[in-house]
Amino acid sequence: MTDDRPTDPSARKPRVALMGEFSAGKSTLANLLLGQNSSPVQVTATQLPPVWYQLGTPGARRIGQDGSATPLPADDWSAVSPKDTRMIQAQLDADILQACDLIDLPGTSDPNMAPDFWDAFLPKVDLAIWCTPANQAWRQSEAALWEQVPPQLWTKSLLLITRIDKMQAERDRARVFARVRAEAGALFRDVLPISLTGALAGRDNDDVLEATGAAALVRFLCHALEGLEPPAPVETPRATAPTPPASRSRPAAPSAGSGTEPRIVPRRITRSKSQGARSRPEHRHA
C-alpha cells in the first residue's frame, strides 16, 4: 500500500484517527468535530471506506485500490464501494483541520477491508480516538484489536465512551465509566464519556458542551496535539456525561494563544507551540 498522504509531507499535520466497532459513533464524532450536521456518506456502516479529512477548498475524491483519483460530488458519496476504494479524500474549511487531519476509519471488523489494511494504515496515524458505546462498553473484541495497535499510540490516544446519555441512571453511568477505566485505562492516555447527539444538537451552547462531555474532549485534543512530536520527514512516493471520579486528574488544557480555554468543539482546537517545541507525552504505567 502506498503512502496516500493528501498533504505536502514537509508541512503535514498530526493525523487523528477515529476508530471503533460498527455503530460506535465515529461518524457522529467526525461531524461534531468538523462542525457539520451530517456526512455525505449516507450508507450503512459496512459500506464505509476510510474518509480522510484535511483543510482546503471543499471537495472530495475517491482514491481507488490502484491509486487512481476520481472526483466525487460534494453531497453524495453513496455510490462509493470499499471493494475498489482505498479511501475518500475530503477537503473542508473546518477550524479543527487547521490543527490536524481527521481520518474516519471503517468499523474494526469490517469484512470489506483487506487483511493487511490495519497494518498498512495505522503507521500513518499519530493519535487515535477509540469510540465504544456505553451499553456495550469495551468488549473483549475491542480489547483484542486495540492490543494489536502500535504501542506508541497508547500513550497518546483517547477511549471515548459514547451514548452515555442512553443510560438513564447516574449510578449506571458511573459504574460503566469506572469499569472501563479500570479495564482499559492503562492502554490509553485518557478515558472520557460523551453524549455525541446532545453535543451535536447544542454545539453553540457552552453549558451543553460541558454537560455532554464535549468540552472535556476539546481539552484533551488541545493538550494531546500540543504534545505530539513533529512527524519524521517522509520521502516522496446528566442524562448526559457523568462526572469522572476524582481519583484521576485530567491534564490541563494548554493555551490556544489567547490565554483562554477552548470554547466549542470545532472552532477552538489549535496548536500553539512550534513544531520543535513539542515533546512526547510521558508513558503512563498501569
Rank of each mutant, 00 (worst) to 15 (best):
T155A: 15
K156P: 01
L159P: 01
R163Y: 12
R163L: 09
I164H: 00
D165W: 08
K166P: 01
K166E: 15
A169I: 02
E170A: 14
R171A: 15
R173T: 00
R175Q: 14
R175G: 04
F177N: 00
A178N: 06
A178S: 14
A178M: 01
R179V: 01
E183Q: 15
G185Y: 00
V191P: 02
L192G: 09
S195R: 00
L196G: 02
L196W: 00
T197D: 12
T197G: 03
T197R: 09
A199E: 08
A201T: 07
A201M: 09
D204L: 05
N205I: 13
D207W: 05
V208C: 04
L209T: 06
L209G: 06
G213V: 12
A214N: 02
A216K: 09
A216L: 13
A216S: 15
L217A: 04
V218G: 11
V218C: 14
V218A: 12
R219K: 10
C222G: 06
A224M: 08
L228Y: 02
L228G: 04
E229T: 13
P230N: 08
P230H: 06
P230S: 14
P231L: 08
P233V: 04
V234C: 03
E235G: 09
T236P: 02
T236M: 11
R238C: 10
A239Y: 12
T240K: 08
P242Q: 12
P242A: 13
T243R: 13
P244A: 15
P244L: 14
R248M: 10
A252R: 09
A252F: 08
S255I: 02
